[in-house]
Amino acid sequence: MGNDARRPHLRSPEDVTTPIPFTVIGGFLGAGKTTLLNRLLTGATGRKLAVLINDFGALDIDGELVAAHGGDTIALSNGCLCCTIGDSLVETLLTLLERPEQLDHIVVEASGVADPGRIADLAMLEPRLARDGVIVVVDSGDVQQRAVDRRVGDTVMRQLKAADLLVLNKIDLARDPTAVRTWLAGQATAPIVEAQYGDVPAALLFGLDQLGTTHPGGEAENFRSWSYRWSGPVDRAALLAMLTETSTDVLRAKGIVRFSDSADRRSIIHMVGRRIDVSEDGPWRGDAESRLVLLGARSVLHFLERE
C-alpha cells in the first residue's frame, strides 16, 4: 500500500475498482439542504445515488417510491438508497460501501454546523471514494445576518469558504438578490448558482458522465453544457488557465486530455466550481482524442465560442 498515485475520477466499465464519486452538501440549518436532497432522490436522474442524511423525518418521500424501509436505510424503487447517519458518519459510510448495490454516486448531507470540507476529506483517505464537490447551500434570506451572529458567524463563514460551489437558495425570498449575491461573492471564491427550492440541474451536482456528448439547452434554461474535442496534444498551462479564468461561470468540467507534456498518458480533469483536480490515468488506448465537457451559466458560452 502507501500508493501515492492520484486516483482517477472517471468510472469506466473496464475498471471495476474505480472509486465512487463523493459529494458533500453543506450549509447552515434551514438553508435548504434537505429540499435539494429530496429532489435528487426522487427526481429521475438515472443514477443510483446513496444519500446519507441526518434525519429521515425531514425528508418528504412519496410512499409509493419506497421499495423497502429497513430501520436506518430506505431503498427507493428508482434504485437510490437513503441512510441516516446516526452517531458516526464514517461508520455509516463504511457500512454503505460494504453493501452489494452498485452505486453511481454518494452524497452526504453535512450537519448544519459541520465544516463540509472536513467531511470531504473522507474521500481523500478512503480509496473506494473519489472526492467530488463540496456544495454549500445558502439561504438568501438570512445568510448575511447569520454570518455576523456571534455564536454561529464563524461557523457559517467556514462553510462558505469550504465550498467548491455555492447554491444561493431561496433567491425568490431575498429582499435584494443582487446585494446578497455581491456580498456572497466577496466572502468566498466559489462560483455561485442561484436557485429556488433547491432546484439546480442534477448534472451540476453530479457531473457530466457522458463524455463527448453534449445537449445544448438540454439542461435548465440558465445552464448549458458544451463539449470540446482536440485531435492533437493540448497545452496544459493554457487549458488550466482557461478553466481557472472562467471558474466563476464554468461550474463543472470533466475531461480526458492528452497534454503535450505528458502525451503518452491520459490526464483526467475534474472540476467542481473553483476546485480543479488533474490526475494521471493509464496510457492511451486506441482513440487518442482529447475530450472536455463543461457545464456553465449560459452567459459564459459566448466567451467559450470566442476561444
Partner: peptide, 23 residues
C-alpha cells in the same frame, strides 16, 4: 470549546459546535 469574547488566550480561533444552537 466555544468561547465568548475575548476567546482563547493564545489567539486560537474559536472552537466548533458539535450540535449547533438551533439544534
Amino acid at each position: 470549546a466555544r468561547m465568548r469574547w475575548p476567546g482563547y488566550y493564545d489567539g486560537t480561533l474559536n472552537g466548533v459546535w458539535n450540535v449547533g444552537p438551533d439544534e
